[in-house]
Amino acid sequence: MLRLIANRIAMSIPLLLLVSLIVFALEALVPGDAAQTILGQNATPASVAALSKQLGLTEPWFERYGHWLAGAVHGDLGTSIINGVDVTSSLATRTGVTLSLLVPGLLLSAVVGIALGFAAAVRGGLLGRFIDLVTLLGFALPGFWIALIMVIVFAVRLGWLPATGYQPLTEDPLGWLRSIVLPVIALSLNGITAVAKQTRDAVLDVLEADYVRFLRANGVSSRSLHYRHVLRNAAIPVVTSLGLIAVGMLTGAVFIENVFVLPGLGSLATQATLDHDVPLILGVGVVLTLAVILVNFLIDIAYGFLNPKVRVS
C-alpha cells in the first residue's frame, strides 16, 4: 500500500513536468511566435519585434521554461500576455467552479454507472435491455448537445432551473445547487455510460469466476453472491478505470462550461486559446493535472482498500 502511494507520488512530478514541457516545446516549434499571432498578419515587423521583446520571447524556449518552472515551484505561474493579470490569481477564482462540476460529476458517474451496469449484468431481461439502450445513447450523444436539449426543456420551457450562470457555494448554497444541477448531469452522462459499461463487463466476468460457481454450488445465496462477492470483486477494475474516466471528464467540462456560460477553468482556457494566451492555458493545465493526480491518488487508496493483496502485503 505504501509502495503504491510512493509510486503514485513519484509519477506525479514527471506528469506535471510533461504537460508543461509539451506546451513550451510546441510553442518553440511553431514558425513565427506569439507576438506575430497576437498582432495578426498585417503587423509591421518592428511592432512584432517590440512585443516579442516585451513578452520575453527573444530568449530560447528552454530558458523561458526554466524561468517559468522556477516561478511555478513558488506558486507563480506568470502573467497573462493579453492583459497582464497574474495567472495564479485568475485560476484561484475559477477553480472552484470547475471543481463544482467535476467532483459531483465523478461521484454521480461512479454511483449511477455502477448501479446501472450491475443491474444490467445481473438482472438481464427487460430492465437489462433498457439499461443497455440508455448507456448506448449516453455513449453516442455528445454531452454538449444533451446539455443544450436540457437547457431548452428544463430551463427555457419549464423554467425549473437557470439556463446559465453560477452562484458560489459559500454565498448561496441553494443557488449553487440549482446552477450546477444541469451542467453536472450533462457532464456525467458520458461518464455514467463508461462506468456502466465497465461495471457490466466486470460483473459478467466475476459471475463466471470459479469462486462464484463454487460458493453458489455450496449454498451461498444469489443475493449474497451478487451484493457481497460479485460487487466487491467487480469494483476493483471499475475503480481503476475511474482515473481514465476522470481525465475524459475534463474535456467534457470545457465544453459544458461553454454551454452554461460558467466562469470556470474551461471557459477561461477557451478564451485564452482564442487569444493565444499560452501562459494562461498552461496555468489551467497545471491545475487540471493536479486534479488528475489527486483523483488517481484517491483511486489508489480505494484500490488498496478493495484488494487485500495490496492491503496485506
Binding site: 475534463l250 499560452v278 493545465g285 488528475v292
Partner: peptide, 21 residues
C-alpha cells in the same frame, strides 16, 4: 504510456489550437 494516459488531453489540445492558430 502510463504517464501519457494521465495527461489531461484537453489542455494540450487547447495549447495546440492556440499555437497552431
Amino acid at each position: 504510456a502510463d504517464l501519457v494516459m494521465s495527461v489531461p488531453a484537453i489542455v494540450i489540445l487547447l495549447a495546440i489550437l492556440s499555437i497552431f492558430d
